[in-house]
Amino acid sequence: MSTELPLLKIETVDKAFGGIQALSDITFALNPGSITGLIGPNGAGKTTLFNLISGVFPADKGEIIFNGAGIENIKSHQLVELGIARTFQNVELFESMTVLENILVGQHTRTRCGIWGSILRFPGVIAEEKKAREFALELLDFVGLKGHADKTSGDLPFGWQRLLEIARALASRPKLLLLDEPAAGLNIVETMQLGDLIRKIRNQGITVLLVEHDMSLTMEISDWIVVLDQGKKIAQGSPRTVQADEAVIAAYLGTAGKKE
């Protein structure tokens, strides 16, 4: 692996819900500017790991180090400010708001206007709002939703909602983007376009951690793969080595401890 300092380090992390050990002893790291695929069967603990990284709940044990600093006690909204953005497995847009407004909310941590500012409309507030709108339109263009700014987001077709959610996450200008099954529910063409989009995001210098069940997509765009099964890391490596790994094949075929 490279000698660069990792952007995100997960170290011996455990998480249990009641009796269920959702994650145990997970360790891996993300290189800056890479796409890492996080794969594993349903219930492996992928979403749980996302929730830990984005501060939804704390880990029971272990450390999560982002950009050189531990983030155990930092709240979700502050993590966004530090540069971690995410999407959800089941798209969670602000459905009553327009496409543009969703992205504007995404810029919440990158704008400052408060209650007084909004009432009195200082020149700075107006300038900020204008810039925010311009950036939002740029992002819409970037993800391929140009021209749909004023539609109600809840009325968009599902594939577009996924794209909008990515645009909303990008609006916070993250260093690390967590994508939870972004291709779920997309057709083949949409999935291919999504692959291109994720590459484009990476080319802007944003590190991507991608949870995805679509293997051809994951293997094609990822630089590195981490495999979870029942809360444990069972393999990691380049797409090619992982695909050949016996434990991985066994986990996916559901035959634990496969014998020759």
Binding site: S54, V56, K75, S76, H77, V80, E81, A85, R86, F88, E92, L93, F94, E95, S96, M97, E101, L104, V105, G106, H108, T109, R168, A169, A171, S172
Partner: peptide
């Protein structure tokens, strides 16, 4: 906008900062 976001989904609102 942030207020309406809370109304639509408090978790998602926190997740966007």
């Amino acid at each position: 906008r942030a207020l309406r976001a809370i109304h639509d989904g408090e978790n998602a609102a926190a997740a966007v900062g």
